[in-house]
Write a protein that binds this DNA or RNA. Sequence first.
DNA 1: GTATATTAAGACTAAATACTCTTAAATATT
DNA 2: AATATTTAAGAGTATTTAGTCTTAATATAC
Lengths: 152, 152
Amino acid sequence: MLLSKTCIYGLRASVLLASKKQGGLEYTTIRELSDELEISFHFLTKVLQKLTKSELLESYKGPNGGVKLARDASSINFMDVVRSIDGDSLIHECALGLPGCGLLKPCPLHDQWSGLKMNIITMMQDITLKDMANNDSTGHLLKNPIQIISGK
Amino acid sequence: MLLSKTCIYGLRASVLLASKKQGGLEYTTIRELSDELEISFHFLTKVLQKLTKSELLESYKGPNGGVKLARDASSINFMDVVRSIDGDSLIHECALGLPGCGLLKPCPLHDQWSGLKMNIITMMQDITLKDMANNDSTGHLLKNPIQIISGK
DNA sequence: GTATATTAAGACTAAATACTCTTAAATATT
DNA sequence: AATATTTAAGAGTATTTAGTCTTAATATAC
């Protein structure tokens, strides 16, 4: 698995926020997010605390509180969330888990893997929360995708 | 982490075998492999049992026994070992861990990720144990790399 | 056949990750 | 001030992955 489950939960919640009114710039309760994403409320709370600490989200306690994106969904990318939760092991890690593998002392897979890894990182940096929110036509991330031709 | 530690151990042992005389086609004891790779003997034994069951290795009990490659190192690729140990979750898994993600119901990352994933898989299929054994000039995988200008 | 060398298999333990529950702190409403 | 709503934080539990240990099975050599 490339990303931890914790990280995936953080991503899903961030994209869900981005899909909300005002592009996620107003408070939504974690309860609402956890209900929609079908993730345990308490666990999601912990995950989102990491995003709050790394200032991707802002939180507010009490009635009408919740979490919101700290800045526009188009300026937060996939990689920001990944680094906040999984750290940058993805960036530095050798495919064979060999300590000390690098340009100076490449493992047998280093050259091939660093190229592929760079492509993954570039992709993660290029795609923003807004992109993902707009690209969830199949409702994978958002159980109740944005209604274009709204019903009731 | 893309590959489990178990999988990485299996890869390292396979490459080490491939680097041995006769290209790994004669028996080497697991004890020798575990000593050279500095992996616990018992744990490596378990890992290699998987490779033996999937017929990438052959084992033989008793004195002069051990494990050897079941076929030439140039005909076993990286992917063979990965699939034997980690299964093909790598091939099928959605980057966001979403069940049901696929061509028919792509998640917001599906298109980008499936392209990158294909590159990873292609790389793993293209590189053989022989390639890796030949390409370990820095001795990352093999603690005592093959001596070209042999000492003592 | 007895001792020795080796892999196979299963039970067990440890560590990492995922998840739950309880309590505290902050804010709003009345 | 009292109560309700919400996130924060910490302790605790469960599950998965990694690793260890013991015993069994198989083969060789004497």
